[in-house]
Simulated assay, not measured.
Amino acid sequence: MPDLLVIDGLRAGYGEAVVLPSMSLTLREGEVLALLGRNGTGKTTLINSIVGLTRRFGGTLALGGVDITAMRPDQRARAGIGWVPQERNIFRSLTVEENMTAVARPGPLTVEKIYRMFPRLRERRHHFGNQLSGGEQQMLAIGRALTLNPRVLLLDEPTEGLAPIIVEELLRALGAITRTGGICAIIVEQNAQKILGLADRVVILERGAIVHDAASLTLKVDPAVLERYLGVSGAAAHQG
């Protein structure tokens, strides 16, 4: 499969601070990448840099062969970058259905298809965003990002603080979308073991640099890597 997202020598951060000294990373169509690392290693900065929210000091980003380096965040969204931040950023004064139809773009991922993925959202489609539980808000945030019909989906701590049964539902839906829709995804996750079953590949960051990049299967059979870089025995990888 061809590379869908190509990051080449990206140097980025905030203000005068460089968090990512030289990041190079590629993702293929349909590939799910788990982004792990201790606190403050640059995971969220990498996500924000793909969205276009950081200061770029150098390097390039391309999506589907198109250079998006100079694009604003709204232009990147239209080009195919879907983003679900930790804060979720749903429209709390709009209903579930209004949240999704307000941003929906033409494509195979329709609001109706999102309802089939997340039946809870259909049941609550007339509820306002501020009337939803944390898990329902996260489903809505993901559903809303998907109605943009993105080519790349970025999720920053999508399961944080959610009940295990909701986490299972979210991961099942994400797996179905990436497997059938050709979307590639980068998922920042606290709990390494939780995400290994969904991810094809795992990248671990330290000080804004990649220190491990391998198939997720290798971490399942050899958790020593998690212990070395994350200080956990396959249980919880810390957010950063």
Rank of each mutant, 00 (worst) to 15 (best):
P2S: 15
D3P: 09
L4R: 10
V6M: 09
D8T: 14
D8H: 12
G9H: 10
R11W: 12
E16S: 13
V18P: 07
S22E: 14
L25F: 13
G30D: 13
E31G: 12
V32T: 15
V32R: 12
L35E: 03
N39I: 05
T41E: 01
K43D: 01
T45V: 01
N48C: 11
S49K: 07
S49Q: 10
V51Q: 12
F57Y: 13
F57Q: 07
A62R: 14
G64H: 03
D67W: 11
T69F: 10
T69W: 10
T69R: 03
M71I: 14
P73Q: 00
D74K: 15
D74H: 15
D74Y: 15
R76D: 07
R76F: 08
A77R: 09
E87Y: 08
R88K: 11
F91C: 03
F91G: 04
F91W: 08
S93W: 14
T95V: 09
V96G: 02
V96N: 05
T101I: 08
T101N: 05
V103T: 12
V103H: 10
A104R: 08
P106D: 12
G107C: 02
G107E: 04
P108H: 13
P108W: 12
L109Y: 15
T110S: 14
T110V: 14
I114N: 06
Y115C: 04
P119S: 07
P119M: 08
E123I: 00
R124K: 15
H126A: 15
H127M: 12
L132I: 07
G135C: 06
Q137N: 04
Q138K: 07
M139W: 08
M139K: 08
M139R: 09
A141D: 01
A141Y: 01
I142E: 08
G143M: 11
G143C: 11
L146V: 10
N149T: 04
V152C: 02
L153G: 03
D156K: 00
E157W: 02
E157G: 06
P158I: 05
G161S: 11
A163H: 09
A163Y: 11
P164Y: 03
P164A: 07
V167Q: 10
L171D: 09
A173R: 10
L174P: 07
L174K: 06
T178G: 15
R179V: 03
T180N: 14
C184H: 07
I186G: 05
I186S: 06
N191W: 05
Q193M: 13
K194S: 09
I195P: 03
G197P: 02
L198M: 06
D200E: 05
V203P: 03
R207H: 14
R207F: 08
V211G: 03
V211M: 01
H212T: 00
A214D: 05
A214C: 00
A215W: 00
A215V: 00
S216F: 00
V221A: 15
D222W: 01
P223Y: 06
A224Q: 13
V225A: 05
V232G: 03
A236M: 12
G240Y: 06
